[in-house]
């Protein structure tokens, strides 16, 4: 009969291998050859230089719309740096996103001028209307919300952007109206290229 140790049961650090979890946690790259080639080309255009990481990430996000783990792995591989370091940079800068942006990415300016003229209320209204938070995308992939600091149109504060289009002197009541413009719109002009 082996005695039990008091701490035995509540020892949190007993390691148990989790084979099934392990498989599901693997980062599986499902990108098409074409997309992989695009990323490789972007990396090569910056000489696969690790010091160009931020530029590579910018260019890749502009082309693919977002930077999922699989894409970061390929960039890390090409630039000969660790995926952890790439992920560190991606999560440090709010500009980079790991979730696909909506077809109509909405940016709310939170710069000083817009902020004092009620940008926060506009943001709240948007969140309420779309039922998503900052950095999120609606389930139908149509809209996403992000915040930015100053678009250089302080005279029009508060400012909101949908894609590249700027809306100035926005009041909370205007939000629904703006969204309506895009709800049934098949115009491809503002759509970001998606993976």
């Amino acid at each position: 009969m082996v005695p039990k140790l008091i701490c035995d049961d509540d020892m949190v650090d007993i390691y148990t291998p989790t084979t099934s979890d392990k498989d599901s946690l693997k980062v599986t790259i499902k990108l098409s050859v074409e997309k992989i080639n695009t990323i490789n080309r972007i990396c090569a255009s910056f000489g696969n230089n690790p010091e160009e990481l931020i530029n590579v990430l910018h260019e890749t996000q502009n082309t693919l719309g977002y930077l999922p783990a699989e894409v970061q792995e390929i960039i890390a591989h090409n630039l000969k740096i660790s995926a952890a370091q790439v992920y560190g940079v991606v999560t440090f800068y709010s500009y980079f996103t790991m979730v696909p942006r909506g077809d109509y990415p909405i940016s709310v300016c939170m710069g000083t001028a817009c902020y004092v003229r009620g940008a926060e209320k506009i943001l709240e209204e948007l969140k309420k209307e779309l039922k998503i938070g900052i950095g999120e995308t609606t389930p139908d992939q149509r809209f996403s919300i992000s915040c930015l600091r100053c678009v250089g149109a302080c005279g029009l504060a508060p400012v909101l952007m949908v894609g590249e289009k700027v809306y100035g002197r926005v009041a909370p009541d205007d939000v629904r109206k703006i969204l309506e413009e895009y709800k049934n719109d098949n115009d491809e002009e503002y759509k970001c290229q998606q993976l």
Binding site: A84, Y87, Y93
Partner: peptide, 10 residues
């Protein structure tokens, strides 16, 4: 040069 750890988020 293992590259397992990095500072992430802000």
């Amino acid at each position: 040069t293992v590259g397992a750890l990095s500072a992430v988020n802000r």
